Amino acid sequence: MYMIVKHTHLTIIALTFIFFIINFVLTMKGSDKVNNKLLKIGPHILYTLFIFTFIYLVAVNPLKLYPFVNGWASSKLGGFVLYVLSITFALKWAKSNLWRIVGLISAIFWFVMSARLGFADHLKVKGISEDTNAYIELGQSMLTAIC
């Protein structure tokens, strides 16, 4: 059951990213299709399912990784919150295309950081302070690779 929920969780993450990119392109074009009912409520449904699968995975995870107890899990949760805020900025709060692009870059950054952290198995078993330093180092290496 754990693996089914885990793969569902990962699929939901991919779908939220796809919805974001579609909405972003339509917003940049100024299309009326951005008001499509599926594009409006779809992401909210996916975020809700994401939260439910996240809660399940945290409750039954074999490594006992809990947010606010383990730095890895807290970083993952923080990355998700910043990802959603970046999406909201890009699609709703930004008034110019330049700021929308900044929101897009920010959302992609937090998406990649959270995904990279998800695959960093060596970070999952370290202490909180070690996780924080490793996460900062990971961020610096990602920025170096991008620039």
Rank of each mutant, 00 (worst) to 15 (best):
M1G: 08
M1W: 10
Y2M: 07
Y2G: 04
Y2F: 14
I4E: 03
I4L: 12
I4T: 13
I4A: 09
H7L: 15
T8Y: 07
T8V: 15
T8C: 12
H9V: 14
H9A: 10
T11M: 15
T11N: 11
I12Y: 04
A14K: 13
T16G: 01
T16M: 05
F20G: 03
N23H: 00
N23I: 02
F24H: 12
L26R: 11
T27W: 03
T27L: 12
M28A: 13
M28Y: 08
M28T: 09
G30A: 15
K33I: 14
K33T: 14
V34M: 08
V34K: 09
N36V: 12
L38G: 08
L39H: 04
K40I: 15
I41V: 14
I41H: 03
G42A: 08
P43I: 12
P43K: 05
P43R: 07
P43N: 05
H44F: 14
I45W: 05
I45F: 09
I45D: 03
L46K: 03
L46H: 02
Y47S: 12
T48S: 13
L49M: 15
L49A: 15
F50R: 04
I51T: 15
I51Q: 08
I51C: 13
I55C: 11
L57E: 07
L57K: 06
V58L: 10
A59Q: 10
V60Y: 11
L63G: 07
K64D: 13
F68H: 11
V69A: 08
N70C: 06
W72Q: 05
S74C: 09
S74N: 07
S75W: 00
S75Y: 00
L77P: 01
L77M: 10
G78E: 00
G78F: 03
G78K: 02
G78R: 02
Y83V: 03
Y83I: 04
V84Y: 01
L85S: 02
I87Y: 01
T88M: 06
L91G: 07
L91Q: 06
L91W: 04
K92L: 02
K92Y: 00
K92H: 02
W93E: 04
K95A: 13
K95G: 09
S96M: 07
S96Q: 06
N97Q: 08
L98S: 03
L98M: 02
L98E: 01
W99P: 03
W99E: 05
W99K: 11
R100S: 06
R100I: 09
V102D: 00
V102L: 01
V102P: 00
G103V: 13
G103C: 09
I105H: 00
A107M: 12
A107D: 05
I108C: 08
F109K: 05
F109A: 09
W110H: 11
W110L: 10
M113W: 07
M113A: 11
M113P: 01
S114L: 05
S114A: 11
A115V: 14
L117M: 10
G118W: 03
G118R: 04
F119K: 13
H122L: 13
L123D: 02
L123W: 06
V125G: 03
K126E: 04
K126M: 11
G127M: 07
I128T: 12
I128L: 12
S129D: 07
S129H: 07
S129F: 09
T132L: 00
N133F: 02
I136K: 00
L138E: 07
G139V: 13
S141C: 04
S141T: 14
M142S: 01
L143D: 06
T144H: 12
T144W: 09
A145H: 05
I146N: 01
C147F: 13
